[in-house]
């Protein structure tokens, strides 16, 4: 097992993500799905832009805080060739829009709502993600 295992911090961070998703539900009555929030900006509707931009600005603001106070948690290079990162980014961008959600919308929100669509999505992306990560790990000797 990895020496980097962080059960307490990861549970605490997860609880904050759940808290944020719950605030979104209480205020806007919506699912806090990041790919959906970003995707909606590519087909903008009047009155439906401000909250999306503000939420995403909040993510970026957190990232600035991370870069200033805990750079090791956010300014990290991954051991992948640039073309692999391009392919990975395109797959994540297209896949999350085609499948209506990602780790937040289907994972956190959908599983909490016990949605059968989200369960099917999570099982699929976890399984395919594991197969790809294991295969790339065998080929490259694992993520650094």
């Amino acid at each position: 097992m990895s020496p980097d295992f962080t059960p307490l911090l990861s549970t605490l961070g997860g609880a904050l993500i759940g808290l944020s998703a719950s605030a979104m539900l209480l205020l806007e009555g919506r699912v806090a799905g990041i790919s959906g929030i970003v995707g909606g900006l590519f087909t903008p509707k009047p009155g439906d832009i401000g909250w999306r931009v503000a939420f995403l600005a909040g993510l970026v603001l957190a990232g600035i805080g991370g870069a200033l106070f805990a750079p090791a948690s956010v300014a990290v290079e991954i051991d992948r060739a640039p073309w692999m990162l391009v392919v990975a980014g395109l797959l994540v961008g297209i896949g999350t829009r085609l499948g209506n959600g990602c780790t937040s919308g289907h994972g956190v929100c959908g599983l909490s709502r016990m949605s059968p669509r989200s369960l099917a999505s999570v099982l699929t992306f976890m399984a395919v993600g594991a197969v790809v990560a294991v295969a790339v790990g065998k080929l490259t000797g694992g993520a650094s």
């Binding site: 994540v92 499948g99 790809v132």
Partner: peptide
């Protein structure tokens, strides 16, 4: 739904980022 999830999973396993963390980290 399933094809989208499979494509997303492949990209996630390859790059290690899902959308939220990528957007949070980009300013670093």
């Amino acid at each position: 739904l399933l094809v989208g999830a499979a494509l997303f999973g492949a990209g996630w396993g390859l790059g290690g980022y899902c959308p939220g963390p990528a957007l949070t980290s980009v300013v670093a």
